[in-house]
Design a protein around this nucleic acid. Structure first.
Lengths: 248, 248
DNA sequence: CGCAGAATTGATACATCTCAAGCTGGGTGG
DNA sequence: CCACCCAGCTTGAGATGTATCAATTCTGCG
């Protein structure tokens, strides 16, 4: 039960939901054809481990649907999430033999995998994949640095508000809505996963979520369904600059 | 006094100390010639600000000598360092108009700058610069993720030990020594800068440095000069895996 | 010599963690 | 169909690590 489904369905890249955002976004028709030949799909169930840190890794991949996490674990069990992978995000590092982090499927997950060797050859030959990968990596680095500010300097309440704002924005983005005024979304993470993201304990997460609820910043329907009556109010709670840090 | 020296000396790239590690590491002779035409040097004094977050930025650059920091500041003044730039590290992002972080010279600093426009054109035309930049960005992303584990999950003592270990390793690397046994180096950061790096206050940094000294993990000669009698002992204090996390 | 920035040290406050007890809701088997 | 179960979550009380505020002490330098 711990092996993923491997599908060799020759899915058409042209109809792929992440076609315009993933590592292949810049590819021309002929480049897509090359990719189609080395790609295959794997799907994982919620909770399944995709890769263990230290494991040999013979592929790189794009998340097609679902959510995965990158985590680091210390010897005594302390865990820190270091990446949250959404559809179109890239997993793995060209040129590296061995996984540096644990990758776990948080929801049911479908990944579009490329065998590493041919993928690296393709990167060397055509610039479009490498260009897009550079762009995506720079974006991830920016995200990591914002995350560092959160981990190092924000209060528990600010951390929770920031995480909710991030998820709300991404969710709005996927649904092609704007992140304004009244917003509704489902939390894709358990309290424990939120804690691992934020460098907190799950109890503190729970308390601060309750506090934001008490203060009317959010409304909870069940444990996971969240209503944000006023997105600007939520943003005020994040501690961030009010102008939203637009990086042009 | 707040404008950097701009030097147009036609330094020979072949003799550059960071020739084999910087963004130009992979360039052929003819590519270096192109770079020589668009490059110029700037130098800054210790403490000078190189760029303010939000400023228009018309160049990208490599650190040639000295140390610079990338920091983010919240409205109420809380600061978090998000990057520590050593010789050969790259500053700026191709395709971005505006600086995302404050860049500050921690020591006297010399940077090799490229006007952004021609640099971007060169990236589009020749793959070597982009390839190397991708590699460097992936390395930085790994470093950022290790830093996130530090910020989110380590104790103050572990944070200090980790920072000392990182600096010791880099210093050993620059001096082409191995990081083992007895090690000696100078701290390039003030207590406050260390605090900004680690997500602590400067008082806590001072206390934990004193504690490590009391426990014989380090010996202080003056405030900045540090002797590590037993590097493995220091590593034990970092909380990291004993096998040093070798990413092959 | 004396000053200013950097660092240390102390006393106290407070945010978050830890340990522990109970709740809730959805699924399962009798 | 109900009772039970269990993972996920909430809440409480107390412990603890780090921040805060404040007073000295270093150290290098004009």
């Amino acid at each position: 039960m711990n092996t993923p489904d491997v599908l060799n369905v020759g899915h058409d890249c042209g109809a792929c939901p992440i076609r315009h955002r993933a590592v292949c976004a810049r590819c021309e028709a002929d480049e897509l054809q090359t990719l189609e030949q080395i790609k295959y799909y794997r799907s994982y169930q919620a909770g399944q481990t995709v890769i263990w840190s230290g494991d040999r890794m013979d592929f790189v991949a794009s998340v097609v649907t679902g959510i995965a996490t990158l985590t680091q674990t210390m010897e005594d069990g302390r865990r820190q999430m270091v990446g949250l992978l959404l559809p179109s995000d890239f997993v793995g590092r060209p040129g590296r033999q061995v996984a540096a982090y644990d990758v776990t499927a948080t929801t049911d997950l479908v990944m579009c995998c490329f065998r590493k060797k041919p993928f690296e050859e393709m990167m060397a030959k055509t610039p479009h994949v490498a260009q897009r990968l550079l762009e995506m990596t720079l974006d991830e680095l920016d995200a990591a640095r914002e995350w560092m500010l959160l981990l190092g300097r924000k209060t528990a309440r600010e951390k929770i508000a920031s995480l909710l704002a991030i998820i709300a924005r991404r969710d709005a983005h996927l649904k092609l809505k704007s992140a304004k005024g009244n917003i509704v979304f489902d939390l894709p993470l358990t309290r424990e996963e939120m804690a691992d993201y934020l460098g907190l304990t799950l109890e503190t997460v729970s308390r601060q979520v309750s506090a934001l609820k008490r203060d009317g910043v959010i409304v909870l329907e069940g444990k996971r369904h969240i209503v944000v009556p006023d997105f600007d109010r939520l943003l005020e709670e994040t501690g961030d600059d009010s102008d939203g840090g637009l990086l042009v």
